[in-house]
């Protein structure tokens, strides 16, 4: 949807979204945020919500590679942008190193903040392959976790960074 002049309130919009590398046609009420469209109209409930006001980070997804909050992103503004959610992170049945590390090191307890945290960490490692623990804490400071006390999240991201670097080295 892209209009230059004001129309009356529409009850429904039709759009093509690019989610996890796939083009998906979807129709939704235009007041909906990306969070609502992902969860309610596309059935992608891996993306969570804890406040819907930008105060917790549970709904973080990647848009054009950047970690953003889907609860404060209008879905009508997402056409043509590459959206990545937790459902698209594993390659087939092969978990991403972050997923492996969060699972093995206790980075995930109840699991509710995990999708947002993992996606945020992915954006970090995509840009900075060797972040220090302090840098990880800073990058993850927009993801509230009520279970872990964060230490095991930081350890998981460090472990995954090492795995990604090794995989990179082997590939080259």
């Amino acid at each position: 949807m892209s209009v230059g002049t004001v129309k009356e309130v529409q009850r429904r919009v039709h759009m093509t979204l690019q989610v996890n590398g796939e083009e998906i046609d979807v129709s939704f009420a235009p007041y909906k945020t990306l969070l609502e469209v992902l969860r309610e109209d596309l059935g992608l409930t891996g993306t969570k919500h804890g406040c819907e006001l930008g105060e917790c980070g549970a709904c973080a997804v990647l848009i054009d590679g950047e970690p953003l909050l889907s609860c404060l992103t209008l879905a009508v503004e997402c056409a043509g942008r590459a959206i990545e959610t937790i459902e698209g992170l594993a390659q087939g049945t092969q978990l991403h190193p972050l997923q492996e590390a969060f699972a093995d090191l206790g980075g995930s307890q109840c699991g509710y903040c995990t999708p947002g945290a993992v996606m945020t960490a992915k954006a970090l490692l995509d840009k900075e392959p060797s972040p220090t623990p302090q840098r990880i804490k800073e990058a993850m400071s927009g993801n509230i976790c009520r279970c872990t006390g964060y230490q095991q999240i930081v350890e998981s991201v460090e472990r995954a960074a090492g795995c990604c670097r090794n995989a990179e080295r082997e590939a080259t």
Binding site: L89, L95, Q99, P115
Partner: peptide, 9 residues
Amino acid sequence: DSRAKVTGQ
């Protein structure tokens, strides 16, 4: 239950 949690399942 870790695998389900880290995959969003």
